[in-house]
Design a protein around this nucleic acid. Sequence first.
DNA 1: ATGAAAGCGCTAACAA
DNA 2: TTGTTAGCGCTTTCAT
Lengths: 353, 353
Amino acid sequence: MAATIKDIAKKTGLGLATISSYINGGNVRETNRIKIEEAIEELHYEINEVARGLKTNSTKIIGVVIPELNNIFCTEIITSVEDILRNHGYATIVCDCRTDVELEKEAVDFLYRKRVDGIINMPVNAKGSHLRKFKKAGKPIVLIDRVIQELRCDSVVVDNRKAAHDAVKQFFDQGHKKIGIIAGPEDISTANERLAGYMEAWEEQGLEIPQSLIFRGDYTIESGVEGLETLVKENPDMTGVLLSNYEITMGAMIGINELGINIPDDLSVIGFDNLSFARACKPKLTVVTQPTEEIGMQVAHLILERLEHPVKTAGDKDKNNENNRDTKDENLIQDIKLQTKIVEGKSMKTIKE
Amino acid sequence: MAATIKDIAKKTGLGLATISSYINGGNVRETNRIKIEEAIEELHYEINEVARGLKTNSTKIIGVVIPELNNIFCTEIITSVEDILRNHGYATIVCDCRTDVELEKEAVDFLYRKRVDGIINMPVNAKGSHLRKFKKAGKPIVLIDRVIQELRCDSVVVDNRKAAHDAVKQFFDQGHKKIGIIAGPEDISTANERLAGYMEAWEEQGLEIPQSLIFRGDYTIESGVEGLETLVKENPDMTGVLLSNYEITMGAMIGINELGINIPDDLSVIGFDNLSFARACKPKLTVVTQPTEEIGMQVAHLILERLEHPVKTAGDKDKNNENNRDTKDENLIQDIKLQTKIVEGKSMKTIKE
DNA sequence: ATGAAAGCGCTAACAA
DNA sequence: TTGTTAGCGCTTTCAT
């Protein structure tokens, strides 16, 4: 069995509390310090975080629940989050829920039983009911990428509407008239926002959108392939298309390849995310990129902020100023919205009148 | 505060052990079952896994340490591992160590303090010294992708030598003579194995390898770009090149794009991993693919096997038969080696004599 | 600066 | 089947 502080105490002849205090940065007499260090060395003592967690009622673990681990947009964010949290003494348990509402709830419940100190979630369940337990426990929740109306908590999102709007506007500016979109699924807010941005750009032109130019995919590679094939078949006059996330972009490129379509001569394209992939495409793709690292940073800082200054919960007795608490609560909530940017490639053709 | 079994006991008038037993699948009288269920419901009781872990000395958590979270080869494997482990009641804490030996050690130590029940590691430190603590504690270790000579433990790897060999042989079979490789770094065994396979194929032809055809990258996109540029510049007569991992493949495609090289007319290419990316390339790439899902499955089953039937450790009294222990230990160790396969694209030209 | 003792929430003998 | 009790390894008063 692994050594415990009891063993250290026995070996050094000191008391339990002294060892514990030393381990936690307390002061001990120099001679004792040496004795303790020796004993730790000799017995290969390593602190037992499980026991500590039970006692202190804090595990120094943050749960992270995302739809897909196997998704570079998610992993880029997590990498950034994890880095910062680790530097602040927090570890993360990452749970991939396969874009499944049931699994997402299971993951959150699991994390609750593990008594994580807080949770970061890119939610699949748009109602947020799976997070209620955490909310009630007064543990911090930070949402990524998608907000939940019913659940007031911090969030970091991207200005998806503007992202899509700007991309489509670029098409119009370059003289395109028939611009399609391969959108994401209806139950994901980012997909709807991007579609809304697309529509907005059309409205600005005072034009009616032919429904055949809108394809609803599901943010997968396969749906990107299918979407491209469908759009091309049904709109022989389409000159440009917006691909609304990374998977769809990759799928559409596969479709374009397999149909032998030339970019940008036959079709102009604006993709999404992942600059490396854009550069590897022939010709290099113009893409909308999201600030994944920045998102991660903001998320990490938000949750750290909450962990250090928890919002008072309804359970706390703050009767002396009920009003104050309420307003404070609301005021503290932060919804951070970041901007995307367009990185120019050679997949956009200028159409002269 | 969250409810405990004590609260349940109080509310139901039953004893602690009864509640505990019920929670763990024991039998209780039907009337009591109902009472307990009601109390659980009412108090929103959720088991505290921290306390349970302390008591049972098992956390039902497996630590996973990988070089990069932001790497699709890793995430595909992890996704598969996690799925299986979860179905067996185990959670995973995934730690990305940024391909840094120091951070890797920190991650492993951290997981040790968290008292994870076992560890899965795609090692950066080829000596394996960071894992000694786990080994000594008798906790199962499973290595992915890379073996460590100094540390006898289960592993799941791919036949990298054969993978590269077969790819290069295909070049020779198609009439190529000047075949380059963008290899990985010297401190990663898979990189060396793939390079060895490359060399082996040359030897079979009875040919000497011009050193200028070998570029040592570091498995990053940037090194792929650089490698391609270098190889092309120094070997105007090179007709084919093997790209030895996904990042290098992507990087090389970027280089090829930016230099305006035509595939396969100017240069034939065989890439590595990620079929979707291969399809998105123009023309579709021929690639060596690794069975990531299968790797994950094997890893998960190996560690589950160990968790249920732990290997005797050095700590056990085996001084009476040192020899016996060794052989037993050795016999139990499993080194699983999986095969890759080549998926044909259109990036390979046949050169007629 | 150090030690004794209580207790975090749970499980596991053992008794009843 | 159910209850009592001890204790997992740690932190934390409260004395000394």
